[in-house]
Design a protein around this nucleic acid. Structure first.
Lengths: 200, 200, 200, 200
DNA sequence: GATGAATGAGAATTCATTCAT
DNA sequence: GATGAATGAATTCTCATTCAT
């Protein structure tokens, strides 16, 4: 009953099921090295199981990537939608979403970067109707323009501006050019995003 | 009349030296699929030569990547510096640089994406003193803050805002969410960037 | 009855673990063709596994070579030392070692040739303090000179003479110029070696 | 008409025809690294010509190896025969040949090692009647036994003893274990070889 | 659930050789 | 005679995946 051959507690923090350990390790490695650069073996090693054992939990590497991406991407989209629903003006909705971006980043920077930067070619594979963070922001922009709170402009471009204002600082923080936490910047980013949106 | 062994005209556009064809194909493929996802064989096939022949022109895949990145990255940085030098106020300098970003993108969108999105891994390998686009923008921001034209703020974060405003629309255009050309948007982006910079 | 995918009995003698079969095949091929001339694929084919499977057992070709060389080279050196320790006079020690050379050769001529002829390139990679056959013989020569049993001379040259007397016949046997077994010659070689050592 | 692009004087000592430079470089590289480990390109680089140009002088790498080996191997055999012919007793003949080995080594150690150590698999390809150094020594041994100067024994083994006494010190010198020159040792080696031959 | 050996398809790279210029 | 680009096969090594135990 004691530890067999490979103690599990060496690397993994022994927390959670093997499956969730695998998912956490995969996200971390995907974010750090990229999907292609991470091998099934790398993931197994991080959780102290062999490659073969991984296939007990996932059909393929591709399925693992898709699964992780979809689940968290959609969850993040819904989180943004919920945050926007809390507020009433476009300005407040945008601000709430930006705070949501910052919070999500600070809670799990690796997951955040996996979802928003890592080239996984999974975007095109999302179910057609699934909500995305881009949709969430765009819906707020659309409504804001319709309500006259935001000047008339290409809503997709406006959405890009909001994303740019929030995502580029994340990149800079990943490269160590600015501090690692986004939340302290959220006030500044809210103002910058709103200014960009209304600068036409 | 048919293709003979050495005819190069099948796929390659028969334009330029083999070497420059290789470089163009490599940039295109790197931008489209990523560096790791592009094999030497892929590049060779795009130029209609065998893998081995590539090594007549480049010592290794790594050298090819580094070469392409460094050459164009530094050239782009210098181009931005030169554009900024044309103007006198911070606002005009920022505007000129944004126009430069848009023009560079429209001239060769694949190269632009290779430099700005795909190859972050190469950033650390640049010669220490080499100028970068980030430096170019930051220098303008620094001067603008010193001159009181831009409100006092973290210059790195300010630089990130400018990059975000211009880079995220490029991402959206690559995904087909907005029109492929950046230049028509440059006026809008100039205004948005300046608004973001002065929103504190 | 026919070969199934995983049957190992076709070429390999089905004896021992895959790992030891690989080692045996590698030594045989290295001795017959040389290390560079033996490909990983050759070794795999001799054991009826694919190239990739070899890497489950060895990290690299280089590691395989080094491993085989070190293990057996040091073991042979220790064997010679032990044989010398059995005897009391220099003459008897030399004779015992030469018998050891002959016995080792006859037990596994391929291993013997791999160690003594093929892998000189590995000599420099041995751990600094590791015992070698050369050291073993030289120690006996040193002691013999010190004890006055062997005439004063360059001990390294004297060591070379012993090696030459025993190794060159091995070469000749490999080329079919003399009989394949060394043991029947050991008496003759003992006398010749001692004569060479004392001929100054 | 002056030096074009690649000056020839950089590495090659500009001595002799291109062809003889190639041969010298090939022998050197073969002796230093081995035949398989030396590429056509290596040889070309050593003489400052391109790979293609080499094929103007030799049909193939194999032919180059064969050519170099045969020519010098036979020449060395004839040299040994001539030396033996100078003397009248077996003892003097053996001594003269050993002096010949030492002289040949010291004149061109690389050539010597290429002929006598490097794995080139060329021995079997020699024309059947061609004289070899082994034949030269064996002939002297045969005659010596017939004349009663050397005790009755296997002449091939006796030949091996002579080779061993002279070749092993060359190996040791190549590894830096003894001084690089053989000629100073020839007296010692003569005595050792004769002692080994007559030790039965 | 997990192990560990194995497969088979690439990947990057090297190399002998050829050939148009 | 020489260049330099090209071929095509071979080499070492990696990797996603499978499967008997």
């Amino acid at each position: 009953m004691a530890n067999t051959k490979h103690s599990r507690s060496a690397k993994g923090t022994a927390s959670g099921s093997t499956r969730s350990q695998i998912e956490a390790a995969a996200i971390r490695l995907f974010a750090e090295k990229g999907v292609t650069e991470t091998s099934i073996r790398d993931i197994g090693a991080a959780v102290d199981i062999t490659e073969g054992a991984l296939y007990r939990h996932f059909h393929s590497k591709d399925q693992l990537v898709r699964l992780l991406f979809e689940r968290h991407y959609i969850a993040f989209a819904e989180r943004l939608e919920a945050l926007a629903a809390t507020e009433h003006t476009a300005r407040e909705k945008v601000a709430a979403m930006i705070r949501g971006f910052c919070a999500a980043h600070d809670e799990d920077p690796r997951l955040f970067r996996f979802l928003l930067f890592v080239q996984h070619g999974q975007l095109g594979k999302l179910a057609p109707g699934a909500p995305t963070p881009v949709d969430a922001v765009r819906a707020v922009v659309d409504a804001g323009i319709a309500a006259g709170e935001i000047p008339r402009q290409d809503p997709d471009l406006a959405t890009a501006l909001v994303f740019g204002v929030v995502l580029q600082p994340v990149q800079f923080s990943a490269y160590g050019r600015i501090a690692p936490e986004m939340t302290p910047l959220s006030g500044h980013l809210e103002a910058a995003a709103w200014a960009a949106l209304t600068a036409v």
